[in-house]
Simulated assay, not measured.
Amino acid sequence: MKTILTNKHISIETRKRALQCYIEPVLMYGYEAWTISKQIQNKLEAREMWFLRRMLRIPWTTKKTNERVLNEANKRRSLIRTIRKRQATFLDHVMRRGKLEHLVTTGKFEGKRSRGRQREKIMDGLATWLGPGKVSDILAAVKDRDLWRDMIATLTSKALDDDDD
């Protein structure tokens, strides 16, 4: 895809569309089950910026800020927001279904915990992203589809506003 993404004869809009259609799905494979820590989020954002810099033929030695690169590409950061929104949609689906996935996601199954620091769970990651609410509030909101959709729409628009600041 390098020849397509770096070709100056193809408009930047077409190249951005190719990036969105062909590369981002490969990058986000299996993201519904990811627990996104700050380290993984930084790596994903860095990869997104790397692709944009390659498309605009900006060498990494050039001291251009990410904001300037985003302005040149006339684009906003969207990878993390897309992942979070789709994770919330997947959580909605799993919670309403109420099968084994529901038990695994909420952590309500029997057994011994392993030694050492416990791994971050999907619900922990979503709870930090969705706000200072409790997990029980999130589970209650999932049962009301309209409330859940409004909550996700509000959070993604808030994330857009935060990116602009």
Rank of each mutant, 00 (worst) to 15 (best):
G107T: 05
G125W: 14
E67Y: 03
K112V: 07
P132E: 07
T61D: 11
K99V: 08
R97I: 04
T82D: 14
T82K: 09
T65V: 04
I83E: 09
P59G: 09
L103P: 09
K121T: 15
R115P: 07
M95C: 10
G98V: 01
M95D: 06
M95S: 07
L100P: 01
H93T: 10
R68C: 10
Q118T: 13
R96I: 08
G131L: 05
R115W: 13
L56P: 10
R57N: 12
T105I: 05
T105M: 05
T82G: 15
K75Y: 12
T89Q: 07
K75G: 13
W129Q: 11
E120Y: 11
G111V: 03
K64D: 08
D124W: 02
G111N: 07
M123P: 00
T62P: 13
R117H: 04
G107F: 01
R113C: 03
R115Y: 13
T106A: 06
G116H: 04
E101F: 05
T105R: 04
S114C: 14
S114N: 09
R86P: 12
M123H: 01
G131R: 01
A73K: 02
G111E: 00
R77V: 14
H102T: 11
R117M: 00
T61A: 12
V104F: 00
I122T: 04
Q87S: 07
L91P: 05
M55T: 02
T89V: 10
I83D: 12
G116A: 00
T62H: 11
P132I: 13
T105A: 13
R117S: 01
I83R: 10
I80V: 10
E72M: 05
S114Q: 14
K85A: 08
A73L: 01
L130G: 08
E72W: 00
T82R: 08
E110C: 11
K99Q: 13
K108A: 14
L103A: 08
N66Y: 03
I122E: 08
R84D: 10
T105F: 01
W60C: 12
L91R: 07
M123R: 01
Q118E: 11
R84A: 06
T106C: 03
T61N: 12
R81T: 15
T82W: 15
R68Q: 10
S78N: 10
L70S: 11
P59R: 07
Q118P: 14
K85W: 08
M55I: 03
E101K: 11
P59Q: 09
Q118A: 11
R81C: 15
R77E: 12
R84H: 10
T89S: 05
D124Q: 09
D124S: 02
E72H: 03
W60A: 11
T106W: 00
I58V: 07
K75D: 13
T128H: 10
E101H: 12
T62S: 12
R84G: 07
S114D: 14
R57G: 02
R96Y: 13
G98I: 04
L91M: 08
L126W: 05
I58N: 02
L100I: 03
A127S: 07
R97H: 10
L130K: 04
E72G: 03
G116E: 02
T89P: 06
L79W: 11
E120Q: 09
K121W: 15
R77F: 01
G116S: 01
L56K: 09
